[in-house]
């Protein structure tokens, strides 16, 4: 007798399940990068950056421009254009973010509510700029290389696995920078007490601009990595923003470790669910869960309460 028939839901075919897990892993990797950016900005600056998804979108859209430009002018293999995009786009986005910080957030004295309203404004402005100069179409970016890994059931894109590996490496680097280097110490000193840090000669303004730029840059890297898989579109920022919010809140606002754990959890489950089942229902439950966590367990599901 087939035991699976006793299950309350239909057991998916193992091949489908494997595909779901793989897709989920890719999503989890990119999501973790994006959410890490949001979490760092909140953790160090206490700024909820609603425009975070638009920095992601900007990274993707710029990647299209850059690869398009390179392939039209220099030519060369796809990995060259992609490599250039991977360097240029996050830096450009980070520069734009630093500019936003200097011109807007700093002038608001990082007041939590005012900065949320301001970043909503930035969200619309960036969206409009993308719509204006990039247009309403979704466009693909060619993957830097094209090889498939043969699994028992199906062939799988090698690029996707590279994305996962690259995300893990990047997160490790960020982790090391934040915990083991002088930069990390300066950031934490600023977070702990702005005035004292200033008195000790830490350029607080530059640290803030740098943190905001780093957050946006991480989102942009995630986006450049994803465009060969998902196409670039001016409205693509909404989805990762929502997911990143969910991740950051479940993981505990500002907790880096919690954020990564939650990103893996959410990314995997979202990947599996959207491959196999109706994704809207899952999203409804996820947003409600986030609201409930904020209400009843504001330190997050995986985070510990700050002293």
């Amino acid at each position: 007798m087939d035991l699976t028939s006793l299950l309350p839901f239909e057991m998916p075919h193992p091949a489908l399940l494997a595909a779901g897990v793989l897709e989920g892993t890719v999503l989890a990797a990119v999501l973790a990068l994006t959410a890490l950016g949001l979490s760092i900005v909140f953790g160090f600056m206490r700024v909820v950056n609603v425009a975070h998804g638009e920095f992601y979108m900007l990274g993707a859209v710029l990647a299209w421009f850059v690869t398009d430009l390179v392939s039209r002018t220099i030519g060369g293999p796809p990995w060259l254009a992609f490599g250039i995009a991977l360097m240029v786009c996050p830096l450009t986005v980070a520069a734009i973010a630093a500019l936003c910080d200097r011109m807007i957030l700093k002038r608001l004295n990082y007041d939590p509510e005012a900065t949320i309203v301001a970043t909503i404004g930035i969200l619309y402005i960036l969206q409009q700029l993308a719509l204006t100069f990039y247009g309403p179409d979704a466009r693909p970016v060619q993957a830097p290389f094209d090889f498939r890994i043969q699994l028992p059931w199906f062939g799988y894109s090698g690029y996707k696995l590279i994305v996962v590996a690259a995300s893990i490496v990047l997160m490790l680097i960020v982790w090391l920078v934040l915990t083991r280097t002088k930069i990390g110490i300066i950031m934490r000193a600023t977070q702990y007490d702005r005035e004292t840090a200033q008195a000790f000669g830490i350029p607080v303004d530059r640290v803030y601009a740098g943190v905001f730029a780093l957050g946006a840059g991480l989102a942009a890297i995630g986006a450049v990595l994803i465009v060969p898989i998902q196409q670039a579109h001016y409205l693509m920022g909404g989805e990762p923003l929502l997911l990143a919010f969910i991740v950051v809140i479940l993981g505990g606002l500002g907790s880096l470790r919690g954020t990564i754990v939650a990103a893996i959890f959410i990314g995997l489950s979202d990947g599996i669910i959207s491959t196999l089942y109706e994704p809207t229902l899952a999203k409804i439950l996820a947003t409600l869960l986030v609201a409930m966590v904020l209400v009843f367990r504001p330190q997050g599901l995986f985070g510990t309460r700050a002293a």
Partner: peptide
Amino acid sequence: GIEAPGLASAYLLLVGLALVLLVL
């Protein structure tokens, strides 16, 4: 020489600018 079709119905830009300028 840049075609900017999106600019023609730029209410997003207005909403965004209005929010930023008001709060500032």
